[in-house]
């Protein structure tokens, strides 16, 4: 069998992307680090947002990373699951709101 596409150990190598494009890699990690600092939102709130988005974009690395980050910050499993639901609700809402487009088209084409 071929190697899996996702290897949990690859998360630790994330920083290596800078090796093939130093300037862009460094700019990205500077930006990334800055985003998650305390600001108008707390770092804790941003960690929960990141966890929700990680699920929506279905990134297994990000899910591992932000579950661990949440644990380190003392975030409870109830808070984490609610964040996942918030992401899931927006994602399913985004699908369902297209139902209006379907309804519009249906109505336009129907006598």
């Amino acid at each position: 069998m071929a190697a899996p596409y996702y290897d949990p150990a690859d998360l630790r190598k994330f920083g290596k992307i800078t090796e093939w494009s130093e300037e862009l890699g460094e700019k990205f990690f500077d930006y990334y680090g800055k985003v998650f600092e305390e600001g108008a939102l707390s770092a804790r709130e941003k960690s929960l947002i990141a966890l929700a988005v990680a699920h929506v974009v279905k990134c297994p690395y990000c899910i591992d990373a932000y579950t661990k980050d949440g644990l380190q910050r003392g975030i409870t499993k109830e808070e984490m699951m609610e964040a996942v639901h918030a992401g899931a609700a927006i994602e399913s809402g985004a699908t369902l709101v297209h139902g209006v487009q379907m309804m519009n088209k249906y109505n336009k084409l129907s006598m």
Binding site: A43, D69, L71, Q72, R73, G74
Partner: peptide
Amino acid sequence: VYNPSGAYLPGDQAALERDF
């Protein structure tokens, strides 16, 4: 004293103190 309940490191001490 706070120490993590599992295989992860403690987060920022000041932030944890605020939450506690």
